[in-house]
Amino acid sequence: MKDIHCQEIISTVKRLFIEANTELGQDMLDAFKSALAKEESPVGQDILNQLMENARLAKETKVPICQDTGLAVVFVELGQDVHVVGGGLKDAIEEGVRQGYREGYLRKSACHPFTRKNTGDNTPAVIYIDVVPGEQVKIIAVPKGGGSENMSRIYMLSPAMGIKGVKEKVLETVREAGPNPCPPTIIGVGIGGTFEQAALQAKKALLRPVGEPNPDPEIDRLEREWLEEINRLGIGPQGLGGRITSLSVHIHILPCHIASLPVAINVQCHANRHKVAVL
């Protein structure tokens, strides 16, 4: 049994959100570079250069990569031999978000759905806790912007529609989103499970570093094929026309009900931000 004080969780969550919002991962910087080499549109090249310069400036000046510093999504892998002391785990995460968004000068984007009144501190966070073996806590902070989330979709397809039907929905989602979700995007696809599981799998799929192949060779092949088809749409960086509409497609597959074929498509903008800590 290992004790972890909630204070440590608060300070870690706070640090992760500030870092995630100002330091883009090396996987994304590498992806921009290889996209620039492939992009034929001069406007598209200009945009990709701006994104690389933006990432450099954000890290240097600590001004966020994007003003939409997101809703605060937190994935926790909680070792079953961990004992959180000094307070509640969820309360600690909320407090870390509160402090991070205040002290990091991050935008507070959480509001009531109808009155639109801002909650003022970017809470409540969106928290998912998995209990796993061991005595460590892994925390992944994911600021998720609204523009790309708005272009995400979920469908309950008929099983007869199969792989072809799922691919059509993925392409349709990207085509209809056009410039709105800030391409070049990452496309998370959750296939199978129940209604809500498909959506959660789509979001979790986005956590895999861009450029890292899917461990399942069959799924990896699908990801590459769908990416190629997406990039034939011509939408391009910022939707202004070009070869690079998406940088990566990430698929998670789960068994589903014999009557169902759920598919969720979670669109992620190029500000693909997440930071991980293990306590």
Partner: peptide
């Protein structure tokens, strides 16, 4: 069109800023 997600880069072009109305709307 400005480049979506280039928030730090665009910030460099803004030399002065002040709220002139509807402060209650926050961002």
């Amino acid at each position: 069109g400005a480049t979506g997600g280039a928030g730090a880069l665009i910030s460099q072009s803004i030399r002065e800023a002040g709220i002139i109305a509807y402060e209650d709307l926050g961002p």
